[in-house]
Amino acid sequence: MFEARLVQGSLLKKVQEALKDIVQEASWDCTSSGLSLQAMDGSHVSLVQLTLRADGFEKYRCDRNLAMGINMGSMSKILKCAGNDDVITLKAEDTSDRLELMFESPKGEKISNYEMKLMDLDCEQLGIPDQEYSCSIKMPSHEFARICRDLSQIGECVVITCTKDGVQFSAKGDMGSGTVKMSQNLGAEKEDDQVTIEMTEPVQLTFAIKYLNMFTKATSLSGSVCLSMSNDVPLVVEYKVEDMGHIKYFLAPKIED
C-alpha cells in the first residue's frame, strides 16, 4: 500500500506544472523515503529529477517500492481539478494499475475522488554523478525567468559567463544582440532577492534557450533558483520545493565543433 497526504496540495500542482512540458511520461518512484522521478525530455537534451521526501508529507506510507508509470498530460488534467487550497492524498495498492487521487477542501465540505490509469513504462535511468561545480549562482527565480524570456526574443542560444564579478547572459540573432549581467548583491533585505556567486574557476557555456524557458515553469515553487556550472558539463538549474525536496533540471551544453 502506498499513501501520501499533502496538506499544501498546491505544491503538487506546481510540481506537475513544472514537469509536464518537458516530460510526456514518467515513472514516479515511491519508496519509504519518499517520491522521486527522473526523466529526459523527448530529444534527450535535458533531464529532470524530482525529490519529495516522505517527512514533507503529513502522512506517508509505502510498504513496498512502487514505480508508477504516469502519463503527465493525464496527471495535469486531474490535478487541475484540485483547488489551490485543497489537501491532496495519493493512494495506490501494491499491485494496482491505478492511482487514486483525493482532493479535500480546507473545511472538508467537498471531497473529490479521481482514479488515473497507470502505464507500464520501461524508463532508462541515468546515473547522475555527485560533483562539485566551478560556479554556483543563486538568484531570484523571477529574474532568471525574465532573463530567459527576454533573451529568447533575440536568439535561440544563450551564452552564460560566470566570473567573480558576476554572471552574464548573452544572446545574438538576426536582429541584433542582448546581454544581461547580474552582479552579486548580498545587501538585499529578503534572502530570495539576493544574488550570490560562489566561484572557484570562471565558466562559459552555451545553451539552447528553449529548454531554460521550460525549466522556468518551476518559478512559482521557489523565490530563488540555483544555477551550478562547470565547463563542458551539463548545467544544473535547481528549485527547492519548500523544505521537502527539489526539482533539478540538467541541460547539456552546446559545444563548438
Binding site: M40, H44, V45, S46, L47, E124, Q125, L126, G127, I128, P129, C157, T206, A208, V233, P234, F250, L251, A252, P253, K254, I255, E256, D257
Partner: peptide, 14 residues
C-alpha cells in the same frame, strides 16, 4: 556553429 550534445552522453546508464 555550436552543436547540441545529448544529456545521455554525460550520464552513464546504471
Amino acid at each position: 556553429s555550436a552543436q547540441q550534445v545529448s544529456i545521455r552522453s554525460f550520464f552513464t546508464g546504471r
